[in-house]
Write a protein that binds this DNA or RNA. Structure first.
Lengths: 215, 215, 215, 215
DNA sequence: GGATAATCGAGACGGTACGTCGCGTCTTCAT
DNA sequence: ATGAAGACGCGACGTACCGTCTCGATTATCC
């Protein structure tokens, strides 16, 4: 399930095209496959260029031709592997008497939590935190795994505001960070579980606010 | 401003105590000093055992005698360097007409945000992510820089609940992650600023809740 | 004056041959050259992998790629440096009224003695003693510097026996050790000089025997 | 069976004598014992100061107080262990019809060969060849294990000359090296066995000479 | 009998070298 | 032109011993 084969690394593919041996597409896959395997067999530290190349049955320079360094390969492998939490096609949108606000957001969060709580999830957060934040790959990676989800969330919040379910003066960016940040925080610090119970409590409490009701 | 010299690295302190040449405290300081310097001159990647040893004017094995690897040294250096956001002694604020609930929490968060937004802050998060999370040093580090602040926050929340400012059925752990997590999230993803405005909006919105008022 | 470039280090020459970048012969030479220099500037103890690598302008791993340890490098350097006492081509001495038996052996011994009495000679014996005697390199080394000479000697003795100059029931191996051993013994124990006088006396006395003539 | 406890290391024992704690004789023995054990458990390379000290239950400085380095300790251990080939008390000297000349020398050589052919023997030769030849310890060691035997041999040769068994113009030093050197040579190079057969052939052939009898 | 002094166990310390791993570049041959 | 193979310079890793040092604890003799 490769995500975007064409734009991933378009380095020299510029103009002339078609001279000499055409590149072998299987090479690309073999490399990412090897990286992926190494990743969840022994963690991000094991994704060395040397190991990847050998495992993929590929020369080191070939790997370097397409990715600039180990981080890039690992990230590409992760992004290639699964297209992030599968976008929750909110089918329940149809007609039901709407239960709670942000019902859809909660559903998305459950999926995200599930993904991130896996072994792969640990790797994702670790790599986000460890990589040089200014790299293109890093940006793409962050966007792919987190900010894209957050953008979907923004949409949901905006709609909910329009529906009058959320307060009109809502600071959406802050709200999003309240919610998605809580997930990440637990994941990174590891001080508590990231599960369904937590997600539901999180949404509920964010909605209701901490403050005591004024009765 | 060393924090707690006694418990920093209690490595082989087993039983007999006081046999052989006592360790030279200047060595300890020189090592951490060198690590600290390297850290904010060139980032965590520059905290090499070799560089640390040379800069501290110390043999490599001496460094290894007290810390198991580069991560541990870097973490110790950071922990030793600054005592984390100085605990805001908010007790003197007693009698004034109390303004908003969680006023004290907000003040603490401002300090934390300030610390973490600095260059050092980036290092802290990067190191949390990079180190093996199950190590003792890593646990100590996480606790020192994050969880300790979170614990202080828990105290404030509990008091606020008792004062009736916050709802009685509050899920404190969730609330804490909502707030501290948001800070970390921005820091890690870098999609928006971590400043006073953000902190104030965060506390306010967490308190009030996202939901539209019912009236 | 490299002796035999081909067989010097035949390490992984297994099967496929000729894949990948061929090794740079200059590297090989630079390493042995550096080792040789270090050797007779400061003795065998100075032939450190680190020093060799640095002096050769080469990475340490490159040295290890071709030789397993410091002994091997030093030995290779020595073997590469001088082709051992140049084999005395004694064939041209054919028709002259032959003087004494073992005249040719004596000539060879003089050269050997000369070589071994030099600084290099001390190194040779020291290295023979220091290296693990079962290693391939060690065997090659011993053969190159000592046993090869002894083999040449064996040839001479056999011919002398055939010419009737030496007793027919001669135990050649014992005889060889009597002679070459005496050289080495002096070299190793250092209790007396290893010079021309000694060599001549040695050959003469071995020939004549210690026993008082019977007549 | 310690050899010479008193003169082994008389370092500061100069004048004042007897102030402070007297040295513990058991320490001395423990150190040499440990060294000896290490030596024939794992060879000379295993006789490190650290290992010796620990095994002897002794502080490193204590070892250094009495011996300057690892070589010295190893040699001392070896010399302390056995007093070299027990001097063959030539009891057969009495009245028997004298068999062969150098009968007594042969007997001594058999003992020497036996000793040196053992594992310990290998160590002895290796250490002789490896040690810095100019050191006092090295000289003592060489003398103890080899030159002392050679001196005994000289005595026998001189007596044999006087008895008219050996030629009057014998170059005794050369003769000695012919014989003892052959032993050492085999030991060091390892190209042939050092056993009784060899020793007997050696003595016989040295006596008779290589030369064909003039009929 | 208390001062003095050397010995001893322990182990910290500055070093040097070890042998290994991975990086990212380069060179060669085969396709 | 691509790709597999792998040599290469480099830098850091973590370990083993070196030989020196500084401790506290003994264990004697000397005053």
């Amino acid at each position: 399930m490769p995500v975007n084969r064409d734009d991933t690394p378009p380095p020299h593919t510029s103009d002339t095209r078609k001279r000499g041996r055409p590149r072998d597409p299987r090479v690309h896959d073999a490399i990412l496959g090897a990286a992926r395997d190494l990743l969840h067999e022994a963690g991000p530290a094991a994704v060395t260029m040397e190991a990847v190349a050998q495992r993929a049955g590929v020369g080191k320079p070939t790997v370097y031709r397409w990715w600039p360094n180990r981080h890039a390969v690992a990230m590409a492998a992760l992004m290639d592997a699964g297209p992030a939490p599968d976008r929750p096609r909110s089918k329940s949108r149809h007609a039901t008497a709407r239960r709670r606000p942000l019902d859809d957001l909660e559903r998305q969060l459950l999926v995200v939590a599930d993904t991130l709580a896996s072994r792969t999830g640990r790797h994702v957060t670790a790599m986000i935190a460890a990589a040089d934040p200014n790299t293109e790959v890093a940006k793409a990676f962050r966007h792919h795994f987190v900010l894209a989800r957050r953008s979907e969330g923004r949409l949901m919040l905006e709609q909910a505001v329009q529906r009058g379910e959320l307060r009109a003066d809502l600071q959406i960016d802050v709200a999003l960070d309240q919610i998605y940040g809580a997930l990440f925080f637990r994941l990174l610090l590891g001080h508590a579980a990231v599960d369904g119970t937590f997600v539901r409590a999180l949404v509920a409490q964010a909605l209701a606010g901490l403050q005591a009701p004024r009765d």
